[in-house]
């Protein structure tokens, strides 16, 4: 189904609430993500950003509400090959885990396969292409633990985009990475969004990125405080109030 042609959102979140035991994490969230968006999900620590993405990806079961992902009810969703995900702990891997860059990127291909999910010779080419996109083809045979944080990040991006997904979710991917590497990383995301038409949902604490590549912002604090265009965000007093002290807001486009 061509969702863009029908003007339907890729993700539609309706009345989602979620609690860990008696602790309420999300309350009545309504949100939609349309094709081509580069959406930044921001908010204070513990505001439910990661939880929301994990609910959208069916890692957590929501308490109530409904989610439609790529036109399918999330409960019956099967098109996992159209989804890319870079988890928060991606750059916090066991450095001694004996897995090569090639093996990690190959994992991403499994969502396209049915049982038994074997990697074939032709998959090598696809893995190479994904590694080329993140400029890491020469590192294919290296153990992932031997790479720097920034390089590991790019490997996880390669794994997430190896199927050429429609939607890419990234959960604080630049944690613990130096400023220069972050800059290059965000430029790469911008290219994926603009040139490859991949819709991106980025959870971030780094508000510096908002001015460069992001076109929409969702600000969470248990509830959805703001959801809209970048420029409107900068004028929202409620958001400025919420983030004051924790973040330095810069609201001019470069």
């Amino acid at each position: 189904m061509d969702l863009a042609a029908n003007n339907e959102p890729l993700v539609s979140v309706k009345n989602i609430s979620f609690s860990f035991g008696s602790t309420k994490v999300l309350e009545d969230i309504n949100l939609s993500i349309t094709q081509g968006d580069f959406l930044a999900v921001i908010g204070p620590n513990g505001s439910g950003k990661s939880t929301l993405v994990k609910i959208i990806l069916r890692i957590y079961e929501p308490g109530n509400g409904s989610i439609v992902l790529l036109g399918e009810d999330l409960k019956n969703f099967e098109q996992w090959d159209k989804i890319g995900y870079v988890p928060q702990k991606a750059t916090n891997i066991d450095p001694f885990f004996p897995v090569s860059v090639r093996e990690v990127v190959g994992m991403g291909l499994l969502s396209k396969k049915s049982f038994p999910r074997f990697l074939l010779r032709r998959d090598e080419k696809i893995i190479d292409q994904a590694l080329e996109q993140v400029d890491l083809k020469d590192f294919k045979s290296r153990r992932i633990g031997e790479l720097s944080g920034g390089q590991q990040q790019r490997v996880f991006i390669a794994r997430a985009i190896v199927n050429q997904p429609s939607l890419l979710f990234l959960d604080e991917p630049t944690t613990g990475v130096d400023a220069e590497t972050q800059e290059r990383f965000y430029s790469m995301l911008g290219t994926l969004n603009q040139a490859h038409q991949i819709t991106i949902v980025l959870i971030t604490h780094d508000l510096g990125i908002l001015n460069k590549h992001v076109n929409k912002i969702a600000c969470l604090n248990q509830r959805l405080v703001f959801h809209g265009m970048h420029d409107d965000f900068c004028n929202s007093e409620l958001v400025q109030e919420l983030l004051r002290g924790e973040h330095h807001l810069v609201c001019h486009r470069h």
Binding site: D81, V86, A90, M107, L110, P116, R159
Partner: peptide, 22 residues
Amino acid sequence: SFFYQELLYQTFDAEAARTSGI
């Protein structure tokens, strides 16, 4: 052997594996 790739993915990164339909 039949589940090798899935087991590897799950062992390395269970959260991401789940989002690949594993």
